[in-house]
Amino acid sequence: MKGPHVSKQEFTFDDLKRILLEGAGADEEVDLDGDILDTDFESLGYESLALLETGSRIEREFDITLDDDIFADHTTPRSLVEAINASLKVTVDA
């Protein structure tokens, strides 16, 4: 399970920022490069549809299936990144 394929199987905070920007853009009053790891997505200006689009892009790029409730259960970037990495680990281990 070593090699370039496996090394891609980590979801980073930078991945999240990039995917948010690509899929939904960014609110001018929010600095995604600032200290936002523990800020709610809602406070960052992302409504449910933006999160749906973000989840769909993560699923495509990382070839995983996310739980329908993932954004309800994980409302901040830190929590989401951890949850997705946990999910990736299960995928790789399996």
Partner: peptide
């Protein structure tokens, strides 16, 4: 337009 509006 705001950055949030353009992609949608």
């Amino acid at each position: 337009l705001p950055g949030r509006l353009v992609p949608q």
